[in-house]
């Protein structure tokens, strides 16, 4: 058994809507091991963000965890009170968001915010300023002494992202959940922030759960990959396995539709026909079957289980269960 810092098993998160209760994610199971980066990847509506928010129980008021278990560092988080969860957030698991303005308060300086995060969780006020400066140095903030007294609007987009990462690191968490942290950034700034996250992880040994829609970012940052589609995990494995030799037809199709994978080869993109199904109207069998080039009768009749086919790889596909093929339409990946 490997050493998991986070173990999600059979997670089902529901949302109440006017049309009734829907499962935004169901049957989601995966681990994050100590010190590793796991990318949770999928298109819009795949449930990747809901899964991440479920871990910290930061769901909107209409959402709730209906089933399953989330064990962090040996402790069950599902069922904890709000007060107990508040202690887990920040101190043990912290979060980085896509938009720093959702995290940084515009009326307080960067120092105020870092000091607040530190003192709430027990750092002496006298030590907090020194620690705040140390954190800004850790995130390679240019001219950190001056930036300590700056308000968020006085910083550039990349600097705000660095400040938010500093608050996330303040209490030396074991796990950092990063929800699309580079999606709103320019590509040169994205490269800086990815570089920073990699460096900080090596320095602090924290595990990272990195939520993204961008397979290029996944290739750059992840050790392991969990691919989600329509509220389910469809494939997981090491980044090399999943991106170089995808087993699930959805992962293969996603790669074949990416301009970054075929551009410059003269190959034509292979789009996935159709659209992601609505949560209110999920197909009865495999959720990808209506768009899958490999689907046959069985796929439309019954939902395939997530099948492990070696120690570290899983795929949700009847092809896997039946052992009919090895590898489906492996995408040619070109740099």
């Amino acid at each position: 058994m490997h050493d998991a810092v986070l173990r999600i098993a059979g997670l089902r998160t529901q949302f109440r809507t006017r049309q009734g209760t829907v499962d935004a994610v169901s049957d989601v199971s995966f681990d994050v091991r100590r010190g590793e980066t796991v990318a949770l990847v999928g298109e819009s509506g795949s449930g990747k963000s809901v899964t991440a928010l479920s871990v910290l129980q930061l769901l909107e008021s209409t959402g709730s965890i209906a089933d399953g278990s989330i064990v962090f560092d040996g402790r069950e988080l599902v069922g904890l009170s709000e007060k107990e969860m508040r202690d887990v957030r920040g101190r043990e698991i912290s979060m980085i968001f896509q938009d720093p303005s959702t995290c940084l308060d515009p009326v307080f300086t960067i120092e105020d915010q870092l000091v607040e995060a530190l003192t709430i969780h027990g750092t002496a006020r006298s030590d907090a300023r020194g620690r705040a400066l140390e954190l800004l140095r850790m995130v390679r903030m240019p001219d950190p002494e001056t930036r300590l007294n700056a308000y968020p609007h006085e910083l550039s987009g990349g600097q705000r992202q660095r400040a938010m990462i500093a608050t996330a690191l303040a209490l030396d968490p074991q796990l950092i959940i990063a929800d699309e942290p580079t999606t709103a950034l320019d590509v040169t700034v994205q490269a800086q922030i990815l570089d920073l996250i990699r460096t900080l992880q090596a320095e602090t040994g924290a595990a990272v759960l990195f939520v993204t829609h961008d397979l290029g970012v996944v290739a750059e940052i992840a050790d392991r990959v969990v691919v989600m589609y329509a509220g389910r995990v469809v494939e997981q494995g090491s980044v090399f396995q999943v991106l170089k030799d995808p087993r699930n037809p959805y992962t293969a199709a996603l790669l074949a539709s990416m301009p970054g994978a075929v551009a410059g080869t003269g190959q034509r993109l292979t789009p996935i026909e159709g659209v992601v199904p609505s949560l209110l109207d999920m197909p009865s069998g495999c959720r990808f079957a209506p768009r899958c080039p490999h689907a046959w009768d069985r796929c439309h009749e019954a939902d395939p289980p997530l099948a492990a086919f070696d120690l570290n790889r899983e795929s949700r596909c009847w092809l896997e269960v039946d052992g009919a093929v090895d590898g489906v339409g492996t995408a040619e990946v070109v740099g």
């Binding site: 490269a191 800086q192 970012v217 290739a219 750059e220 992840a222 090399f240 991106l243």
Partner: peptide, 27 residues
């Protein structure tokens, strides 16, 4: 050159083997 070298590479092996020269600062 800097712009092109900032683009994530979808091949994880190539991504790790590539030496980048990331730009400092923002536009």
């Amino acid at each position: 050159r800097s712009l092109l070298s900032s683009v994530p590479i979808i091949d994880p092996e190539l991504a790790r083997a590539t030496v980048r020269t990331p730009l400092e600062g923002d536009v």
